[in-house]
């Protein structure tokens, strides 16, 4: 079973997506969807994604809520910065912070969250020294950014490790 469907969840999701997009449940489209989802699962196998196990399911909801809140807040903050950019010079700059995360997927998730938040952009992560280099649009409250990121990293560590 595992050799034919290495990623069952991914295959099922792809099949569902295929059926919903073509908006038909005729046998033909089901067969075509099955073929596409199986082949794409094999392609994913060649990419060798790192597998990780989630430990604390209960923390995930809290993490998502915090991320959504932060995204909304920094959307407003960055909007104000852009609108005031003519009058007030923008204080943008680079920052480094040391992280304590090992799990590949946790790091990827942290990178996506940081970049999706307006106002912070992930640039480079040094795996050996575990130092993250990122860019912030508003460097004046540097401590706040540092605290936010350490908080995210702690949450992800609890969820993934």
């Amino acid at each position: 079973m595992r050799t034919w469907f290495p990623y069952p969840l991914l295959s099922i999701a792809l099949l569902l997506m295929w059926l919903l997009l073509s908006q038909s449940v005729t046998p033909g489209s089901i067969v075509l969807g099955l073929v596409v989802s199986t082949v794409l699962a094999w392609v994913t196998l060649n990419l060798q994604p790192a597998r990780s196990r989630l430990h604390r399911w209960s923390r995930i909801a809290g993490f998502i809520l915090r991320v959504v809140g932060d995204v909304i807040r920094s959307n407003v903050a960055v909007t104000l910065i852009i609108l005031n950019a003519g009058r007030r010079p923008v204080h943008a700059g680079f920052m480094t912070v040391s992280l304590d995360l090992d799990d590949e997927n946790a790091l990827a998730l942290l990178a996506c969250v940081l970049t999706a938040t307006p106002g912070t952009a992930w640039l480079e992560y040094d795996r050996r020294q575990k130092i993250l280099l990122f860019h912030v649009l508003d460097i004046e409250n540097e401590d706040l950014w540092r605290k936010t990121i350490t908080r995210y990293a702690a949450d992800l560590k609890e969820i993934f490790e």
Binding site: V78, A85, P118, L137
Partner: peptide, 28 residues
């Protein structure tokens, strides 16, 4: 929001600052 994001692309001074502007257009 999208308009403000693109305005940021126009007004912010250097590339790294401009990198933050499209995220408003997408996430908002």
């Amino acid at each position: 929001t999208t308009l403000i994001g693109s305005l940021g692309l126009l007004r912010l001074p250097d590339f790294y600052a401009r990198l933050h502007a499209p995220t408003i257009a997408t996430s908002g």
